[in-house]
Each structure stands twice: as C-alpha cells, then as structure tokens.
C-alpha cells in the first residue's frame, strides 16, 4: 500500500523544526508576554509530541482528534523527561535549559521524521509531489500549497538545518550552563566582620546575573540566628547583610554561611570573634 504524507503534516514538521530553532536562539531572552505564552504553549504542549510521533511512527495514520490527543500527551511526557534530564543534573531546570532541551528534542525528532518520510516516499516511488493535482484555478494560496506538496525536500532541508543548528547551539549553551553550575554557586562571599553591639556583617558579590534567595546564618553548632532575603544581583554588584546576634552573646566562634537554594556556600573568613 502506498502511504503518502499529507502536505500539511510536512508543512507542520518544517514549522516545528523552524520554531524550535527560533526558540533555541531566543532562549534566555524575554520576548513580549503574549508571544512568549503562544510559543511557550506550542513548545511545551504540542510540537514536541507532534515531532516525536512523526519520527517514531511515520506510518501511523491517526484521525485529527486522536492525533491531537497523542501530541499533547507525548508532549507532556517530553516536558517531563526533559525536565528530569536538566533538573536532576548539574544543569538545573531553568527557562533557558528547558527551552534548549525541548527545542533540541523537537528539532531532532522533526529531522528524523522528515528523513523517514522522505525514505518512505522514495521506497514507494510516490512522494507527496506525485499526488495528482486538482485542476483548480491558480491563486497565491493554492500556489503556496502546491509548493508545499511538491517541496518535501525543502521541508527536509529546513528540518535538518534546524536540527543541526539547534542541537549544536543548544549543546554548547547547555554545556556552558552545566559548567557554570558545576563550578559551584555563582556567588562569592567577600567576607564577614564583627560589629559592636554583637552583630555580623556579610558582604556578597556575584559574577552572574541571577535572582535567588540567600540565607545568612550565624552558626554555633546549630543555627542561632539567621536572615533570609531575596535579591537580584547583577554581575559585580555587592550585597551586604547585617545580622544581629542575641545579646548577651555566649559564644566566641561564629560561623557564617550563605545558602542559595539547597546549596551551602562557605564564606571566606568564617571564624569571627565576638568581643
């Protein structure tokens, strides 16, 4: 039986690959909210599943409602596995890493799907371009549609190019992301100093722009006093916290620590004698 790929499926594959490439290139930027919502929903709930289905089961012909169901469900699975891959490793689950991961999955799957569709068409000797043309009046829209019907090689090229760009670019960016995460928390504590009345001043600077919660805790075996704050540090910006100690202070050695998320950062000069 000759299986042909509907032109709209080929066009959708090309569009998925192209959009994933755009998403990967725009990862880390903040586009206007409506555009971000539209692309975000497409990239999380529809396109990964569509591409993966087309790559994994190219001969499967589902009706539109069934295809929609499968696209959404498989997209959710892709989100989950992608999230596990970045969130369970040093890379971390951020907007950038998720966008890159999903883009890579979508572009790669779209590329595989296009290759498999092309092979299947070559095998049966009847690609989409051989579908009989209806004798309808020529309009710009119909010309474009006919172009898509006859242009599966163009779609294949787009998909492959998008996959290569996304995967190479995404891999580089993700590895950079992982390298930054692996070299430890991106904050450098400059030091602490004792104050009178009993208190500790902690100064922190960042070499990466990031919004986080920072905890400054004064330790004496266990947390004696601490303070939390949410800050947005720009590269090179300095942040200072002043932590009051209970009075009268009954301890001599105070350890100060910074906590970013679940990580603990040792602070330079943690031993402070309270006078």
């Amino acid at each position: 039986m000759v299986t042909r790929t509907a032109p709209w499926r080929l066009a959708a594959l090309g569009a998925a690959a192209f959009l994933s490439m755009v998403t990967a290139l725009a990862a880390g930027t903040t586009p206007p909210l409506p555009l971000r919502v539209l692309i975000g929903l497409l990239m999380t709930l529809i396109l990964p599943g569509f591409s993966v289905l087309a790559a994994a089961a190219p001969r499967l012909r589902l009706k539109v409602p069934q295809l929609a169901l499968a696209c959404v469900a498989v997209s959710i699975c892709c989100d989950l596995l992608c999230g596990l891959a970045v969130g369970g490793t040093a890379i971390g689950l951020t907007a950038t890493s998720v966008a890159l991961g999903l883009s890579m999955v979508t572009a790669l799957a779209a590329s595989i799907a296009a290759i498999r569709q092309a092979r299947a068409s070559a095998d049966v000797g009847a690609g989409p371009h051989l579908v009989a043309t209806q004798s309808t009046p020529s309009t710009p829209v119909s010309d474009l549609y006919e172009g898509l019907r006859t242009g599966w090689r163009v779609v294949l090229s787009i998909c492959t190019a998008a996959a290569v760009c996304t995967i190479v670019g995404g891999s580089l960016l993700l590895s950079q992301h992982a390298a930054v995460a692996a070299r430890g928390p991106a904050y450098l504590a400059l030091g602490t100093r004792a104050l009178s009345p009993p208190a500790v001043a902690v100064t922190v600077t960042s070499h990466e722009r990031r919004s986080v919660a920072i905890r400054v805790a004064v330790l004496d075996g266990k947390i004696v006093v601490g303070t939390w704050t949410r800050i947005h540090l720009r590269p090179g910006q300095t942040w200072t916290a002043r932590v009051k100690l209970p009075s009268p202070a009954t301890f001599e050695i105070v350890h100060t620590s910074l906590y970013i998320g679940s990580s603990t950062i040792p602070v330079a000069g943690t031993a402070v004698r309270i006078g």
């Binding site: 990239m43 999380t44 999230g83 969130g87 951020t94 907007a95 998720v98």
Partner: peptide, 29 residues
Amino acid sequence: HHLFTFNPLLAASSVYPGLETVTSAIADM
C-alpha cells in the same frame, strides 16, 4: 532549579516530581 528537594509537607511529593516538573517547564517557557 533542581528536583528532589525535601518537602516537609509530604516527602513522597518531591520524589515523584512529574507534575511539578512539567508545571515548572510551562511556567518557565
């Protein structure tokens, strides 16, 4: 930005993070 952080309300929630991972991906994207 990482999974499996201890959840004091229900420890089982953080070791089955599927729902929250997908929600986080949608919120981030």
